[in-house]
């Protein structure tokens, strides 16, 4: 099993505040990995460090075997790493089609190639609204659009920051289905979540982060069997 994405003893800071400390874990090609932890545990910072939005102070991040830490976000994205931010960050003045255009990158060998038509199949709601500005979409539709926009870059691995946050339960179900669809298409997925219920429904492997440190790594089944870990860090 080869690691598609690998973090090795990553440290980051915001100003003088130490956010991540020696974070290490890996995601294998084709799997869905989930980073679990409560708010402020360092989940978003971890994903931002991977895509280059937060500077990595120490340690190494490898993607498809190459070092990517220290590079600009656009360089990392160009290598086939897609990032979907937690707060969606839709270009609200641009239409749905234009939002997709911004994400467009050339096809990539070894990764599924997406077109507008294919994405509209995956997210039918977007098809009806293709000429509407992103700002007019509902919260759930915006969440679909932000994922579709990243997929236009034909990533081989995609980072999803809290995809279920703030969505109606019925939309959360659709989101879980979409993530399983990505896995089937051969995309490696790393998502962050606080919702264990959702994580269990989509992920193969879980890493628990608390106060900027990884406290547990194992399969979802192992996590399910480990009552003590769940009680200590997930508080459900």
């Amino acid at each position: 099993m080869t690691a598609m994405l690998e973090l090795e003893a990553v440290d980051t800071y915001y100003g003088r505040a130490h956010i991540l400390s020696r974070v290490s874990f890996a995601a294998s090609a084709g799997e869905v990995a989930v980073l679990l932890g409560r708010n402020g545990a360092g989940k978003s910072t971890t994903l931002k460090s991977i895509i280059g939005l937060v500077r990595v102070a120490a340690g190494a991040i490898r993607f498809a075997g190459e070092r990517i830490d220290g590079r600009a976000p656009y360089e990392i994205a160009k290598r086939g790493l897609g990032y979907v931010p937690e707060d969606r960050r839709i270009f609200s003045d641009l239409t749905v089609l234009e939002n997709l255009e911004v994400g467009r990158q050339p096809p990539r060998p070894g990764a599924p190639t997406w077109t507008e038509a294919k994405l509209f199949e995956l997210f039918p709601n977007l098809a009806e609204r293709r000429r509407q500005p992103g700002g007019r979409l509902s919260g759930g539709e915006q969440q679909m659009l932000t994922i579709a926009r990243t997929l236009m870059g034909n990533p081989s691995c995609i980072l999803l920051d809290e995809p279920s946050e703030g969505l109606a339960p019925v939309i959360v179900d659709q989101m879980a289905a979409a993530i399983r669809g990505l896995k089937q298409a051969g995309v490696t997925v790393l998502l962050s979540e606080q919702n264990l219920h959702f994580a269990t429904a989509v992920a193969d492997r879980a890493h628990i982060i608390e106060k900027g440190e990884i406290r547990f790594s194992g399969t979802i089944a192992e996590l399910g069997a480990n009552e003590a870990i769940r009680a200590a860090y997930l508080a459900v």
Binding site: R38, A41, Q194
Partner: peptide, 11 residues
């Protein structure tokens, strides 16, 4: 308005 948005379950 969404008093617990963005908080951990226990919080």
């Amino acid at each position: 308005d969404e008093p617990t948005a963005g908080m951990a379950p226990k919080e």
